[in-house]
């Protein structure tokens, strides 16, 4: 038996609701391009753990005499590192090509010579004009040597 559709039915079937995809795709592409262009991807940073004393004071009262490491930045971008009375090293100088890794090797020898343990305190003594970069790199070098008892000195 043959079925015949009325005109209304035929009209209804031909004018079914349809989602128009093309404008949506346009918008989606525009959004994608916008986000890709405007996104400012921050490189993933690492973190060096440190602990500050409960009360930072400017007193020098420490139970065990710490190994003092003096840091002084120079205008040419290098850093002069004085390890107590044991010696002075220049790091990052264009002429001497010393690196913080080399300094670590020297420091390890000094620690062994002085009979210190890894738990013994090490005091970083930068001055007010020492570059933060040099302070952090020295701290990192100490951390690489498994020295954990590191004290930051506050400066005037």
């Amino acid at each position: 038996m043959k079925h015949y559709h009325s005109i209304r039915q035929r009209f209804a079937s031909s004018s079914r609701m349809q989602i128009r995809m093309i404008p949506m795709i346009d918008v989606v592409f525009l959004l994608l391009i916008f986000f890709l262009m405007t996104a400012n991807f921050r490189p993933r940073e690492g973190f060096l753990p440190a602990e500050l004393p409960r009360q930072i004071t400017r007193s020098d009262l420490v139970e065990l005499e710490p190994l003092l490491i003096y840091l002084q930045s120079r205008p040419d971008g290098s850093c002069v590192v004085d390890i107590g009375d044991a010696g002075s090293f220049t790091v990052g100088s264009p002429e001497e090509r010393g690196s913080f890794s080399d300094l670590g090797v020297e420091l390890k020898k000094i620690i062994a010579q002085q009979g210190r343990n890894l738990d013994d305190p090490v005091k970083l003594v930068p001055n007010a004009l020492t570059k933060w970069d040099h302070v952090v790199k020295t701290y990192d070098m100490l951390w690489q040597l498994d020295l954990r008892n590191i004290i930051f000195t506050m400066v005037e």
């Binding site: 440190a50 602990e51 500050l52 930072i56 001055n127």
Partner: peptide, 22 residues
């Protein structure tokens, strides 16, 4: 410089927060 950054360290210690990460 360290002198500029240490104020943040002082403030952290002053707030009682001693565990920091650099």
């Amino acid at each position: 410089t360290y002198g500029q950054v240490q104020n943040a360290l002082l403030a952290s210690a002053g707030a009682g927060q001693t565990k920091i990460q650099i």
